[in-house]
C-alpha cells in the first residue's frame, strides 16, 4: 500500500484568547502546528501501513518553514516528505491548492490511497481533499469514520453522515477524508524524531515540477476575498451569579422568563 497524506500547517489556536475590544485573535507568539484534523489521517495511514506494509509520503504546500510539520509527521511514522513551496503558489484558493497538490501527487508516482483531514482548522473549507480526488479522478469518501477492510484492490469504509453511517466500497486508488472518530493519533517517538532529522525534504515548485502556471496561486484562483470582518464575539447577555447565595430558584425562574420572552417555552 502506497499512501499519500496531504497535510497543512496551521496556527495553533487551542489556547488562543480573543481580544474583546477588536474581536480578533491574540496571535502573539502563536505556534505553527500540523492541522489537528490531519493527525487522524496520519494515524490512519500508519495503522494501514503497519497492517499491509508500504510507504507513506506526506506532502504540504506552504512556506519553507512548513517542513517542520512534515518532519513531525515522519517522526510519527511516515516515510517521506515533500514540500511544495514557491512564490507562484501565493494566494491560492482551494481550487488552485488542490490543483497544485494533485500535480505533485501525480509526480510522486504510483499510489493506492490518499488520506486527508476532513478540513483545516484555519480555512475551515473542507474543499481541498475532495478537490484533489476530483483532479485525479479518484473515488472519494468524505467524513470517513472507519476503515473496515482493504481487499481485492478496494477499500471498505464507513462514513459519518447526518443520521448515521454509510458503508461504501471504493476501488483503489481512492481518497478518504477522515474525521476524528477514525483513530487516536500517536505521539512522535524518540527514534522517529532521530530519523526525521536525517530525512531530506525535497522542495518542489514550477522550477522542477510540470504544472500549468495559470492554474497556480492568486492568478489561478477563481475566488477572491474582497472583505474581512471581525465579528463581535461578545453578546453582552444577562449573567446571574448564584455561587454564594441560595437564589438558584429565582435565577432559574428568570431564565424561564427569558425563554418565554423568546417564545422558546
Amino acid at each position: 500500500m502506497n499512501i499519500v497524506i496531504p497535510i497543512k500547517q496551521v496556527p495553533e489556536t487551542s489556547n488562543v484568547k480573543m481580544d474583546e475590544e477588536t474581536g480578533t485573535m491574540k496571535r502573539d507568539g502563536v505556534e505553527s502546528i500540523i492541522n489537528p484534523l490531519d493527525l487522524y489521517a496520519i494515524e490512519t495511514g500508519i495503522q494501514i501501513k503497519e497492517e499491509y506494509g508500504g510507504t507513506i509520503t506526506v506532502i504540504t504546500m506552504g512556506p519553507p518553514s512548513a517542513d517542520k510539520s512534515l518532519k513531525e509527521a515522519i517522526a510519527m511514522g511516515c516515510d517521506d516528505g515533500i514540500l511544495l513551496s514557491g512564490r507562484e503558489f501565493a494566494g491560492s484558493d482551494t481550487w488552485a491548492t488542490s490543483y497544485a497538490l494533485s500535480e505533485a501527487i501525480r509526480a510522486i508516482g504510483e499510489f493506492d490511497l490518499i488520506l486527508a483531514g476532513e478540513r483545516a482548522t484555519d480555512g475551515d473549507t473542507g474543499q481541498v481533499g475532495p478537490g484533489i480526488a476530483s483532479w485525479l479522478d479518484l473515488t472519494l469518501s468524505t467524513y470517513t469514520s472507519k476503515v473496515v477492510d482493504i481487499k481485492d484492490k478496494s477499500v471498505i469504509v464507513e462514513r459519518m453522515v447526518e443520521d448515521g453511517y454509510e458503508k461504501l466500497q471504493l476501488p483503489l486508488p481512492a481518497l478518504l477524508t477522515v474525521v476524528k472518530e477514525i483513530s487516536f493519533p500517536r505521539l512522535p517517538t524518540l527514534r522517529g524524531k532521530q530519523r526525521s532529522r536525517k530525512v531530506e525534504i525535497p522542495q518542489w515548485n514550477l522550477s522542477n515540477l510540470k504544472m500549468k502556471e495559470d492554474f497556480l496561486g492568486l492568478n489561478g484562483s477563481p475566488t477572491r476575498v474582497v472583505n474581512i470582518d471581525h465579528p463581535k464575539v461578545t453578546r453582552g447577555g444577562t449573567v446571574i451569579d448564584v455561587r454564594n447565595d441560595a437564589s438558584i430558584e429565582k435565577a432559574v425562574s428568570q431564565l424561564i422568563d427569558y425563554l418565554k420572552s423568546k417564545e422558546l417555552v
Binding site: 480573543m18 430558584e249 427569558y258
Partner: peptide, 27 residues
C-alpha cells in the same frame, strides 16, 4: 465566571450545575 462561554451567552447562570440543571428541569 471567567469562562469564555459567558461572553457568547444571551443568558448565563454562574454556579453549581448539579443544583441549577435539576432546578431548571423541575421548573
Amino acid at each position: 465566571l471567567g469562562a469564555d462561554i459567558f461572553k457568547v451567552a444571551d443568558f448565563g447562570i454562574v454556579g453549581d450545575l448539579f443544583e441549577i440543571i435539576p432546578e431548571l428541569n423541575k421548573q
